[in-house]
Structure formats: structure tokens, C-alpha cells
Design a protein around this nucleic acid. Structure first.
Length: 199
DNA sequence: ACGGAGATGGACT
DNA sequence: GTCCATCTCCGTT
């Protein structure tokens, strides 16, 4: 059971080890979530902090939906958590690829502007990279990720519980933000090799 | 209508 | 380490 009804600070570590499943006509891609960050209602770094806007609308809807937004050339993927209307979410910052690696590599190559093909851990070790690898963009903003999903409606992104024992978790400050830098709201699976490069 | 900022990634010195 | 591409959103004119 994945705890998404509690607040993001509680949900973020509970998502570690869970599987993210992307199904398209081309096949299935699966990654294990290894790094997350919580963004809370009273948190200046949270997109929902200043209240509902068009961009962050999904954060104020029901837990278990996706919140996808664009930053520079990349997308970031979040899982909405907490009571409806509370405005909080968990950013997925890195996954460990387990199924459909070749398909992820193709998707990354397609989305990469430069010439060098992403290799090794660079496949999915960052929030923008994993969105490229799984073809997550604004079309997947607001889709239901758990339970009865919108799969028949052509939507194919699902969150499944972990199959393994709870991982050993480390907690640190968040990465790449300018506000509320000091809050320890980043959670990682200890020692996992697919974690993002933390400056 | 406008301008600045950004939960990033890749290239380069 | 630094620089910046590229675009969406949002607060301000």
C-alpha cells in the first residue's frame, strides 16, 4: 500500500522502491523510484505556496494524480499527495531502470538536443532525464496513477507498490532550489547508483 | 502585452 | 567550476 493521503513529507519516503510503469504501443518501460523530494503547502519552494494557478491546478486536486510541469528544456514529474485541495506533491528525481532499457535509451536520444548519446546512469538519474526516458510531458499532467487508471483512455502511466522489503532511506536537503534550501525534504535509497548528481 | 525566473541538463573552460 | 538553451507561467504594466 502506498501512502499518498498523508502529507508529502510522509509520502516521499514511502514512494522509494515503488515502480513507475509507462505503457505505450511501443512497449512497456518500468523504473524503480530511488530518489524523491517533498513539497509542502507552507513551503516557499512549493509551486502551490502562493495558491492555485493554472499551472499548479493539479496539485490542488486528488492525491494519486500526476503533476507535470516544464522547466527550461525539461519536464518534471510529481505525485500529488495529501488531502484534496491542500496543494502538495512529491517530485520524483531519479529512477532505476528495470524494464525497457533500450526503449528508454531511444527516447532519451530523441529528446537530447546535442550529439552525445546518454550512457550508463545518465539514462534516468535526474528529474528531467527520467521524464525523457519515459516520454513524460504535459500530456500526462493530471492523470490518475494508482488504482483504476485511465489506461483505456489511452493514458498509460501507473504507480505500483514495491515488491521488495522497505529500503534503507537517507534524508537530506533538496537540490537545485533557491527558496527554503535548508529543509531536509529529499529522500534517497542509501547507496543506490542511480541517484541524481547532487552538485 | 511584457519581462523575469525557474524543483534542469548538456557543453565547455 | 561556468554558461545558456528554450518555453511556460505568472506578476506586473
Amino acid at each position: 500500500m502506498i501512502d499518498l493521503l498523508g502529507d508529502a513529507e510522509h509520502a516521499a519516503p514511502s514512494l522509494l522502491g515503488c515502480r513507475l510503469v509507462r505503457s505505450t504501443p511501443a512497449g512497456e518501460r518500468v523504473g524503480i523510484i530511488v530518489e524523491t523530494e517533498a513539497y509542502l503547502p507552507d513551503d516557499p519552494a512549493c509551486h502551490a505556496y502562493a495558491g492555485p494557478t493554472e499551472r499548479n491546478a493539479e496539485m490542488f486536486r486528488s492525491a494519486g494524480a500526476s503533476y507535470v510541469y516544464r522547466i527550461h528544456r525539461s519536464h518534471c514529474f510529481n505525485v500529488v499527495t495529501g488531502p484534496e485541495g491542500s496543494g502538495q506533491a512529491v517530485l520524483v528525481r531519479a529512477i532505476e531502470p528495470v524494464v525497457g532499457v533500450a526503449s528508454m535509451q531511444r527516447a532519451r536520444r530523441r529528446a537530447t538536443v546535442g550529439s552525445t548519446a546518454p550512457q550508463g546512469v545518465a539514462l534516468t538519474n535526474g528529474p528531467g532525464k527520467l521524464c525523457q526516458a519515459l516520454d513524460i510531458d504535459l500530456d500526462l499532467n493530471g492523470v490518475k496513477l494508482v488504482g483504476e487508471t485511465d489506461r483505456d483512455a489511452g493514458v498509460s502511466l501507473r504507480l505500483l507498490p514495491r515488491e521488495t522489503p522497505a529500503p534503507i532511506i537517507e534524508r537530506t536537503i533538496r537540490i537545485g532550489i533557491s527558496k527554503a534550501r535548508e529543509l531536509p525534504l529529499r529522500f534517497v535509497i542509501r547507496g543506490n547508483r542511480w541517484l541524481s548528481q547532487s552538485a
